[in-house]
Design a protein around this nucleic acid. Sequence first.
DNA 1: GATATCATTTTGTCCAGGACAAGTGTTTGA
DNA 2: TCAAACACTTGTCCTGGACAAAATGATATC
Lengths: 324, 324
Amino acid sequence: MSLRSLEKAAPVSVDPLSGREAAAPGSADPVLMLSIGAVERDTGLSKDVLRMWERRYRFPLPLRDQHGERIYPPDQIAKLRAIRRLMDRGHRPGKIINLDLPALEELGRTPAHRSESAGDIDEALELIGNHHLPQLRQLFNLRLMTQGLQRFVLDTVVPLTAAVGDAWGRGEFAVFEEHLYTEQIQSVLRNAIATAQAASQAPRVLLTSFPTEQHSLGLLMVEALLVCDSATCIPLGTETPGQEIVRAAEAHRADVVALSFSAAFPERQAASGLKTLRASLPGTTAIWAGGACMRRLRKSIDGVVQVRTLDQIAGLLTDWRSAH
Amino acid sequence: MSLRSLEKAAPVSVDPLSGREAAAPGSADPVLMLSIGAVERDTGLSKDVLRMWERRYRFPLPLRDQHGERIYPPDQIAKLRAIRRLMDRGHRPGKIINLDLPALEELGRTPAHRSESAGDIDEALELIGNHHLPQLRQLFNLRLMTQGLQRFVLDTVVPLTAAVGDAWGRGEFAVFEEHLYTEQIQSVLRNAIATAQAASQAPRVLLTSFPTEQHSLGLLMVEALLVCDSATCIPLGTETPGQEIVRAAEAHRADVVALSFSAAFPERQAASGLKTLRASLPGTTAIWAGGACMRRLRKSIDGVVQVRTLDQIAGLLTDWRSAH
DNA sequence: GATATCATTTTGTCCAGGACAAGTGTTTGA
DNA sequence: TCAAACACTTGTCCTGGACAAAATGATATC
């Protein structure tokens, strides 16, 4: 008899009347309970990690369904999300995993200094929260016209995106509100890019991200900044396999390959992927790697420029041009 | 002693001089060998599936590194990708996994009936294959201007997208070429949508897809068609959880919720998701479901309009308006 | 001839618990 | 002050079994 069969025989608290799990502390509506695979998708923490934490730290401690499989109640998922957010900011799991949710949120609040968010950031946040779509669009277009594309990206889009992310993390924004924001900004930026696109000049920059990295907003911001300085952009969207990046760089005779890594992207994978890519590309092709993940990365990688803030882009461009 | 330790003691073909794996049939440059995690990211096949297939079908059969961990040579990865492509088109792994790469590519070729592709479709395909980005952009803009947005979507974008998908399925296009096409079309469509957007009229249509459905092009095409007829669009992008769709529909007082399902989306999941959504939304809110998956679905779902071709959109809109 | 129901096969996900590498932080020694 | 050695932390990979969920095919019913 297998271990799992033994487990199944063990008493499981199922209400014989409703066939549902009995209400245990922290449990809730069965429809809100997620399987380990669903939690992986939801939090970005792999199944292996979830099981490992359970073994090592005794958290999360999911209930079990009638087949002995883990089912995670919403409060544990919320805590996992909070932990994940803090890890993205550099905290280590062992130090924070046994704190409770309020303590975690407090921890998250401190380093995020949203004190000095400018007036138009707050204005935009309010429009998003109140679902005033046309006004939001109008605000973006107004800002774009008064600031110009470059300043719009650096002074409005960057801080606003951070603020939306924070608010979402604190549970102040729903998922769909964050989605809507992303769509609107994308629309505005893509429009501006198409309009500003000039006759193609060097360098030729290929823009994309590695597989599993789905965030396209960072790439779009970079593209906007590059277009401001008349570089030639070859946008591939997100999630291009390593091999394909090499083939694309060759086919388009790219001078630079620019990659974006969000905070959620695992540092290790970023580092190993970049090393492989560096080895596969000709030395004459530069690699620029940016995004929140790169900001945290300690070690530098030979032959890869780590773009820590978007301000650097303009400088990198002039550097490249004076070197060629 | 553990099984794994035993394995390590087993003979591994390592060249004692270079310390590298000896060249086995199908092996190649060590930097191109990927770990199981990397293959998961690259092909979208989970580690569990990769190990299961190895056990069941004896493919893939990766080499092992000095720690006994799987390392996959490029040719096996290429075959895995081909299998994955065919599975997305409805093939089953057991039937095709033991075919070789040419046979797999042949399989992809057959069902595609590329006989009657029009002249400008071929022209565009050629530009994509030759990586002539500016000319491609120009062609799109020209078509858009001569045809108008509605006809551009129906007569150019729809068949061209199908043709690109087919060509990619046959291995005639690389992944990055398909990515590039998608990006360009997106840019053109988003631009046109932003330009055409009129003062908001009824109905208010919320556009999105269910989780795991990442294809956004279909949604964009629908949005373009709706904008042509002055409907109000609330685009949420892809992958909105069911709960969130309901909340968003409420917050934005949507009259219609439009969902897109690509060919790869499992029919059953689509059907059950739609039923749940139908039950959660007020009866006054219409649901329109479109995409390749809906075309295959036999049964109709109560209270859900199945949009089988994009031509229907205009009619649906007038129907809705005359009914209100 | 179409459709519903049920059995069977196929396929993917989950389980346990061990091993170990790579990264991080700390102490020791030059 | 630096670096090597050390211990500790953390994530990824391993095996092989069990079983759920999906797809298919067969049979019965309208």
